[in-house]
């Protein structure tokens, strides 16, 4: 969540960048896990889902930010949900019009963007309190972070599970695909592995800073 939600934030590069890494909605805040796990069995699905979610996130954040003085506090969650659901319906019909194949692959998860807690979370914690241009940049950053997370799962699962990347075979004919990776358990395992990696990096950094401050203390 944003650190001081009641203060009006000024626009800075960090507004965009924090969504990618420090406050990444998936890896750090563990929000919106269902689509992350469910539609990342191929890279192309992951990209499509990321873009669709980003579109809904950006549009609904803009509208919510514009309407923030008019929405009564008591019914704000309901209002946010209705706004989000409207944009999801647009995306739903849009994808149906662009590619039926993709629509079939993503299945109910396009409509389930409504229930993605990243979007409602950002609406509640950020868009409903901040000015338009900050909200726009913040939602773009969060959307990019979400897409990045989907992509990092989608590529790993596609490469391991079917030996292809974006449908292009990577290995020779002798490659034995690790089928479990594109099945449900693979989603849990790959996301778990990513989190392990990030934990390890974080712990190492902490250890290094402790050692460094320890050395400094000894020198004094």
């Amino acid at each position: 969540m944003s650190n001081l939600p009641n203060r009006i934030e000024s626009l800075s590069p960090d507004t965009f960048i924090r969504g990618l890494w420090r406050e990444n909605p998936v890896f750090v805040m563990l929000l919106g896990m269902c689509p992350v796990l469910a539609v990342t069995n191929t890279t192309i699905n992951a990209i499509a889902m990321g873009l669709a979610t980003t579109f809904v996130l950006v549009c609904s954040s803009i509208l919510i930010s514009l309407l923030r003085d008019w929405i009564p506090k008591q019914v704000r969650i309901a209002s946010f949900i209705v706004i989000i659901a409207t944009f999801v319906t647009i995306v739903d019909y849009g994808i149906q019009a662009i590619s039926l194949e993709l629509y079939a692959a993503l299945g109910a998860f396009i409509q389930l963007i409504v229930a993605n807690c990243v979007i409602l979370g950002r609406a509640e914690a950020f868009a409903s309190k901040q000015r338009l241009h900050t909200t726009l940049v913040d939602s773009l950053g969060m959307g990019a972070g979400f897409t990045l997370a989907l992509l990092s799962l989608g590529t790993v699962r596609e490469i391991l599970g079917s030996g292809t990347l974006l449908g292009i075979p990577l290995f020779g004919d002798n490659f034995q695909p690790w089928v479990v990776m594109i099945l449900p358990p693979g989603g849990f395992f790959v996301l778990g592995a990513w989190l392990l990696l990030f934990n390890w990096i974080r712990l190492r950094k902490e250890q290094q800073s402790i050692e460094r401050s320890g050395v400094a203390a000894n020198a004094n």
Binding site: L30, P185, G186, G187, F188, F189, L191, G192, A193, L195, L196, N199
Partner: peptide, 11 residues
């Protein structure tokens, strides 16, 4: 510790 282990268990 934390979410990583829970996800492995869920897997």
């Amino acid at each position: 510790q934390g979410a990583a282990l829970s996800l492995m268990l869920a897997g």
